[in-house]
Amino acid sequence: MEVRTIKVFTTVDNINLHTQVVDMSMTYGQQFGPTYLDGADVTKIKPHNSHEGKTFYVLPNDDTLRVEAFEYYHTTDPSFLGRYMSALNHTKKWKYPQVNGLTSIKWADNNCYLATALLTLQQIELKFNPPALQDAYYRARAGEAANFCALILAYCNKTVGELGDVRETMSYLFQHANLDSCKRVLNVVCKTCGQQQTTLKGVEAVMYMGTLSYEQFKKGVQIPCTCGKQATKYLVQQESPFVMMSAPPAQYELKHGTFTCASEYTGNYQCGHYKHITSKETLYCIDGALLTKSSEYKGPITDVFYKENSYTTTIK
């Protein structure tokens, strides 16, 4: 009895394709271990004539594949690729409408935090270190965002349907971005203890939790000093293409032309909904596939993004 075979390709990165001759009487799992086709788990399936010449994702289970996976995804987590594939199996079914010149995501599976993050990423200057993220990001900007969303979920250790947080998501993504040249110098002034300067680099240099107003941050924000008295913390120097200011959701007025974009969060910790506000020729609110415009805006804002380049204080 002759062994019926077909020729397929296996890959971990969709760049390096490895030619395989597979036995049609055995499952993919018996031949390769966990195997995925377009995100779908085909591990328990036997090869079919229609699979001839198709590319299958496999887990990096030998040295060659491990090197290829690390170079593309910059992670050695053995569960990463499987999590990416199972997320992709959902995100490829989502709709990605162009809204006001940006790629958004039609609401499904509690994905409003991903839509808000995706919209924000198209408006701030950011370059990702893992080629996987950078490639998928370019495709997302062009309207094909399924891979990018699935990668975000995998890097953030999230599953489809789980509630997510924009600030946490951005923080994970910033860790995989090139923020080497970003720098922030802060000064804390206390009447009792004097003053202390701190220099922050990388992710810490672009994120701040405690106030939404970048102007206020430049002037000074009140913080408790270690001595128990009130101290003032203010920005001395900022070198970065953008800054992200966050605070627990509270009524906040966004003035046209003073910011790049913002995240609105309605609801409580267990259950809520994100919308995205962007400042173009007027203010726009993007909620999944829905767009509304207004000249002014007041609502429960939790993150505001500002364009920056270089700032030095005039406070002496």
Rank of each mutant, 00 (worst) to 15 (best):
D135T: 08
D135I: 09
Y214A: 02
Q20R: 11
Y208N: 08
Y252M: 13
S181G: 13
A108P: 01
G202C: 01
E215V: 01
T11P: 05
Y234I: 12
L283R: 01
Q197H: 07
K293Y: 07
L186S: 08
K191V: 09
P34Y: 08
C227K: 01
Y57D: 06
A142S: 11
K95Q: 15
C149D: 00
K255I: 12
I6M: 12
T260F: 07
T27H: 10
P34Q: 14
V12P: 07
I223F: 11
G33W: 00
Y208V: 14
S171W: 15
T314V: 12
N100F: 07
S310E: 12
I124A: 01
I223C: 14
F56K: 03
N187F: 06
D303N: 06
P300R: 06
L200D: 09
Y252A: 09
S171H: 15
A205V: 01
I124F: 05
Q30D: 12
S279D: 14
T211G: 08
Y36Q: 07
T313F: 15
I124Q: 00
N129S: 08
M26G: 14
F305P: 02
L290S: 15
T266L: 07
M26C: 14
S171K: 15
L212R: 04
V12Y: 07
Y96E: 04
C271D: 08
E204T: 07
E308C: 07
A231C: 06
T116L: 09
H18W: 11
A87C: 14
G161I: 04
S104C: 12
N111V: 00
G220P: 11
V12D: 09
G210Y: 04
T314S: 15
G210W: 01
T159M: 11
I286R: 06
E162Q: 13
G210K: 01
T75G: 04
G194C: 03
V22E: 04
H176P: 05
K7Q: 13
D135V: 07
I45P: 06
K93E: 11
E281D: 15
K233N: 07
I124P: 03
E296N: 10
T116M: 00
V304E: 05
M24R: 12
R139F: 08
D13G: 05
T258Y: 06
S213L: 05
K127G: 07
Y284C: 15
N49W: 15
I152M: 14
Y297N: 01
T116R: 02
Y57C: 09
T5M: 13
Y57P: 04
Q237W: 08
T211A: 11
G194L: 01
A289N: 10
T159K: 15
Q98E: 15
T11I: 00
T120P: 09
C182T: 02
A262F: 00
P60K: 13
Q195E: 15
T258G: 09
D77S: 09
P241H: 06
T169W: 03
N111F: 05
L290Y: 14
S50M: 13
F56V: 09
R141C: 13
P224E: 11
V67Q: 13
Q134M: 06
H276V: 04
D303V: 01
P47G: 08
R141W: 08
K307H: 12
L81G: 04
G288F: 00
L163P: 15
K127I: 07
C285P: 06
A69G: 05
T64I: 12
Q237P: 00
Q195I: 12
Y73G: 02
P241D: 11
D77A: 10
C227W: 00
W94H: 01
K229S: 15
K46Y: 12
R184L: 00
P34E: 12
I152R: 04
V12K: 08
Y214H: 01
L235G: 01
K127R: 12
V188I: 13
S240R: 01
G194V: 03
S246E: 01
A145T: 02
Q175K: 11
T75N: 12
V243G: 04
S50A: 11
E68T: 06
F128K: 04
L179F: 15
T313D: 15
V189F: 10
K229C: 05
V236H: 02
I105A: 07
N157R: 10
M170S: 00
T5F: 12
T64A: 11
E168F: 11
M170G: 00
G202S: 02
V160W: 00
A117D: 00
L119P: 07
P97T: 13
T43L: 05
D180C: 04
L186I: 15
L121K: 03
Q195S: 14
K93T: 12
E239N: 08
T199Q: 11
T282I: 06
C261F: 00
D165Y: 07
K255Q: 11
L153V: 09
N49M: 13
M207V: 07
K54R: 11
Y36G: 04
K293R: 11
D62E: 10
H48I: 14
N187P: 02
H51F: 04
T5E: 13
L121R: 03
H74N: 07
E162N: 05
D13R: 08
A146S: 11
E204Y: 13
Q237I: 08
A87R: 03
H276C: 14
N14M: 14
A250Q: 15
F9H: 14
C227N: 01
L126R: 01
Y234A: 05
A115M: 02
D109K: 05
V185S: 02
Q123S: 08
Y113G: 03
N187K: 15
L118R: 01
T282W: 08
Q222M: 10
